[in-house]
Nucleic acid binder design. Structure first.
Lengths: 219, 219
DNA sequence: GTCTATAACGGGATAGAC
DNA sequence: GTCTATCCCGTTATAGAC
């Protein structure tokens, strides 16, 4: 029970780091051999530590998603403690949802290029990720948003959180290309600045009136 | 020179249709064998018609992106013709950008699950798609949005169009899961309704004030 | 123009040595 | 607990028959 990191854990971490980076650069289909070569570990170590390539991806996701979601719920708890009843401040709820994604751990930027790929994975995989990491958080934030925008119909609220997630995912995902296509005008740099931009845009969206949906009744 | 579709074109189309659907369900890594089996064509036909699997994907993308972009520019042209000078109506510019994605051809829904995967593909692939199908359209819409929101700094405008794209992509991409996770509350059904929701949210976002970015000057 | 058969390769997983 | 060597499978692409 000493404080030193065992060699096994060190290997495990190196695999995780390298796999995250290479899958970000080249996609999930990057060969395990490419990962182990760059990590300077043996191919067998992957199956020893993670059992399969799929499970390695699960571990990559869990390592980044878990602390972000913890931080999100922490911030939301604090917010709710400050406002035990009545309306919650919309901007601050959105900030609790978005800020941890951009700053939380100093290595969140490593999973950026993978985020969009995770969120657009085939259904079966996506359902697993959603059930494991997203359901609970989304439900908590839906409740909080209901208190922040009490006049919004529940379906509309869900749509708007959905839009917010889309903005967030796309911003993470295109972080490295954005400066190129915008001729240097846009850059995902300071977490606070990025979050502020997202929060301002989303909050305005949440506050706008529900569009008149000329619904056709079924005869 | 008769009007009948040659057998070769028929095969080509069947490959395109099946590949689009299967790649949507299972990801790009779906084997060509699975595609040709379901399409009822021979494996060799793929390489005959498309030269390679990569080029097949390019063809899938071109077939859906091209008409959408044409329609977008048509709508924008009409809009600009109606307002030869002065401000453009923001909602209508956004509608020209978004509506064709959801209604244009009746088969746009087939590429939905692929959209997110295309937009989160590895850099090299993404740059190719962006250069081929997106650069021009984005530039045209940036110009139009400058006329619709003249007070917005160019960088902020680009950010906000970027957010809008994220909302759109995520909505396409999660179209089939959205009803499940929202307990039936949300559904991508009528194109007009979906577009209206996106336009309302985005327009409000575009209209909000630029957040005060307490920029730290470098000493 | 279309299909068959095959080549050439690279992948993940594993059994067993260390 | 870690590494080596190997197995076996599925892949794309192609050469050549029809």
């Amino acid at each position: 029970m000493n404080g030193a990191v065992s060699a096994g854990q060190e290997t495990r971490t190196r695999i995780l780091d390298t796999a995250e980076r290479l899958m970000g650069e080249r996609g999930f289909e990057v060969p395990l051999r490419a990962i182990t070569a760059e990590a300077g570990v043996n191919l067998g170590a992957v199956n020893y530590h993670f059992h399969s390539k799929d499970a390695l991806l699960d571990a990559i996701i869990a390592r980044r998603f878990t602390p972000v979601n913890q931080r999100r719920l922490e911030m939301l708890d604090t917010l709710e403690a400050c406002h035990p009843e009545g309306a919650l401040p919309l901007e601050e709820v959105l900030e609790a949802f978005l800020r941890p994604v951009f700053e939380s751990s100093p290595d969140m930027c490593h999973i950026r290029p993978l985020i969009g790929r995770i969120y657009s994975a085939p259904r079966e995989f996506l359902s697993r990720v959603y059930g494991r990491h997203l359901t609970g958080v989304i439900q908590r934030f839906i409740s909080a948003l209901q208190r922040a925008a009490p006049d919004l119909p529940p379906a509309e609220l869900f749509w708007r959180l959905h839009f917010t997630v889309g903005m967030m995912v796309h911003t993470m995902n295109w972080a490295s290309i954005l400066p190129v296509i915008s001729n240097g005008a846009c850059e995902v740099g300071d977490p606070g600045e990025t979050t502020a931009r997202l929060v301002a845009f989303a909050a305005a969206g949440f506050r706008t009136h529900v569009p008149a949906t000329e619904k056709h009744f079924h005869a």
